[in-house]
Amino acid sequence: MNDSTAGRPATAASPATAEAAPGLRADHVSRRTHDRLILDGVTLTLRPGETVGLLGPNGSGKSTLLRLLAGVLAPSAGVVTLDGRTLPQVGRRATARRIATVEQHAHTQTELTVREVVALGRIPHRRAWSAASAVDTRAVDAALERTGLTDRAGQSWHTLSGGERQRAQIARALAQEPRELLLDEPTNHLDIQHQLDLLDLVVGLPIATLIALHDLNLAAMYCDRLLVLREGHVVAEGTPADVLTPSLIKRVYGVRADVTHDPGHPVIRFLRRPPKP
């Protein structure tokens, strides 16, 4: 399949379909800010247990789509639903219990231990000013263990390496016990080993995951499905083998590439521009 057939225009679901749709869904969502259309008519459904890669150049609308799905931003048009109900109907607290997000950069001026950072993920499950319950403690312990941070639990978050800080943010998200996980370029500024370790962790989770990535080879290796944005529009959606073609890479990123197919996923080799005469 070439990229012209891989690209699927977003189509609006009927009200009956939207009401019945399980999981997290964006239906023809657009976002306009200061007379600029940042995202235009995007439709996406996250299926249980699936890892979806969100691709596109800087400024293509990836972060905006993630924030719309998380309920941080409201769409200018279209609707985001969770199990068929709009996010305002679900409510902020219930949405926060269900959907966890990991931003590109996490910062805090407060001196917190790793355990305290991870425990922030339990806030949606607790009443205001209430003490942590045994359930909260077990969820934090499990998240620390799953991310390999148990031995760092008492350490200051500020003393962690970049890869460890990202793992701590993943652990915070896991402590929420979400069913959907949204990650905005979590491999940025990590060395190759930590990129692979983090993505191995993420794709091993039994939840629906949407992850914005710049590295096309990582997306091909780890994602079940890809959604490609350019200037706020969906230009392609499908499996990595269907989507990652030389013509699409040229059209979206403006670079030449060879694409070969290892067992299981495509491999992209970028080509240098020909020398200027």
Rank of each mutant, 00 (worst) to 15 (best):
A236W: 10
P263M: 01
V202C: 09
I99L: 11
R93Q: 12
E231S: 10
D136N: 09
R272E: 15
G61P: 00
Q166F: 06
A10I: 00
A96Q: 06
H194F: 10
V252M: 01
S247T: 15
L216G: 00
E50M: 07
D224Q: 02
G163N: 09
R92E: 15
R256W: 05
R32K: 11
P9N: 09
I249R: 03
Q109R: 15
G264N: 03
L120G: 01
V42P: 04
T239I: 02
K276G: 13
A100Y: 11
T86V: 00
V80L: 08
D27W: 00
T11A: 15
V72W: 04
R152F: 15
D197I: 06
T137E: 14
L248E: 01
E180R: 05
L37G: 00
A173V: 10
T86W: 04
I38D: 01
Q155E: 15
N217D: 13
V234P: 01
L199R: 00
L46Q: 05
S161G: 05
H125W: 12
N188I: 12
D200A: 15
T113C: 07
I123S: 12
D215H: 09
D35A: 11
A131V: 04
H34W: 02
G56R: 07
R115P: 03
G254F: 00
A21V: 11
R152E: 12
G204A: 09
D83V: 11
T64Y: 05
P240S: 15
R172Y: 04
V203F: 06
D3S: 15
P178Q: 06
P75G: 08
L65T: 12
R8N: 13
R122H: 06
H105P: 04
G238Y: 13
I207W: 01
S76K: 08
G23T: 11
V135R: 14
P9D: 07
A173L: 11
A100S: 10
E231H: 09
R122I: 06
W157G: 12
I99F: 11
L68T: 08
R122T: 04
H125P: 12
A143K: 05
H265V: 11
L181S: 06
T86N: 08
A106P: 03
N2H: 14
K276N: 09
V228Y: 03
P178T: 01
A175V: 10
P240N: 10
G23H: 05
A16R: 10
R179L: 04
H28Q: 14
M221F: 07
I249W: 03
P75C: 01
A16W: 02
Q166I: 05
D197H: 13
G49E: 13
G254M: 04
